[in-house]
């Protein structure tokens, strides 16, 4: 169950998007979030759709992963769609029944906003589906590096993130072990009333916390013994490589932006 939550993310595949530098993907997603708000008519939405589909196609990520990503927000999308459908009173009246009135503008707006939502989710999913968490971390670290000037502990944050990533499987394994140990003593985790299930979590969390602190302490000692003394003077083993295709990706999103400015009304 917990496996899927976190490991359901990265999907290894041999695609152009997979091989890109995490920085270019991060920049693309960042710009996309702004650019998509420029779309406001059929042509501009069609352009965004083409862009999104092209990225999906290039990433070679099976559609079911994207659909899985959309599922949790489906209700939200539906809700905003209905909200616009019923409460935007523009254009001509299409349908009327009692107090319910649907205008063409509302329908249009509902569809557009839902699409915007869906595109955003798809593009951000593509980022996490095609980039390993660790290279995302590396990408963020290099992109945020200039902020060190303003005392933002970029290196430390990145290290924290990479250590968390490293320990997630270990802690999940441990959770599993403790759960089994407690289940053997008669604790019910998966059935019974909600209150008793909540109570069952306590004997799970406490040993987990205790052991995490012990791990953290030992890890800190081991890191120090291996010569870790902050980011100063450190070299990096993992290298990010910006290639031509990365420039193309960033150019593509810029061009999309320009086209949207031209075609929007």
């Amino acid at each position: 169950m917990m496996d899927k939550l976190i490991f359901g993310r990265y999907v290894p595949a041999d695609s152009a998007i997979h091989k890109m530098d995490p920085r270019s993907k991060l920049i693309m997603v960042f710009l996309f979030v702004f650019v998509i708000f420029l779309a406001n008519n059929v042509v501009s939405y069609a352009l965004v759709a083409v862009f999104t589909l092209a990225i999906v196609k290039l990433s070679k990520v099976p559609a079911r992963f994207l659909i899985n990503g959309l599922k949790p927000v489906l209700i939200l999308i539906l809700f905003t769609f209905l909200l616009h459908l019923f409460f935007t009173k523009e254009g001509e009246l299409l349908y009327k029944w009692n107090v319910i009135e649907i205008y063409s503008g509302g329908l249009r707006q509902g569809i557009f906003i839902s699409l915007r939502f869906a595109f955003l989710i798809v593009i951000t999913s593509i980022l996490t589906l095609t980039t390993t968490p660790i290279s995302l971390t590396d990408g963020l670290e290099t992109l945020f590096n200039p902020l060190k000037k303003w005392k933002l502990p970029v290196h430390e944050l990145a290290l924290m993130m990479s250590i968390s990533l490293r320990f997630i499987p270990t802690l999940l394994e441990e959770t599993d072990k403790i759960m089994k140990a407690q289940a053997a003593r008669g604790t019910e985790f998966s059935s019974g009333p909600v209150t008793s299930r909540m109570k069952a979590v306590v004997p799970l969390l406490i040993p987990l916390f205790v052991s995490s602190f012990k791990r953290a302490e030992e890890l800190a000692v081991a890191m120090e013994s291996r010569g870790y003394r902050g980011g100063e003077g450190r070299t990096k083993f993992r290298l990010l490589r910006w290639e031509r295709k990365d420039t193309y990706l960033v150019l593509a999103i810029c061009i999309l932006g320009i086209l949207l400015i031209v075609f929007r009304t």
Binding site: S162, R166, R215, E218, A222, M223, R226, R234, T235, K236
Partner: peptide
């Protein structure tokens, strides 16, 4: 509790990175 890197080679490199 002494494995810092996310992969084997990253972990071996950790001390070398620290040493610059």
């Amino acid at each position: 509790n002494q494995f810092v890197g996310t992969t084997v080679q990253d972990d071996v490199a950790f001390g070398l990175e620290n040493a610059g």
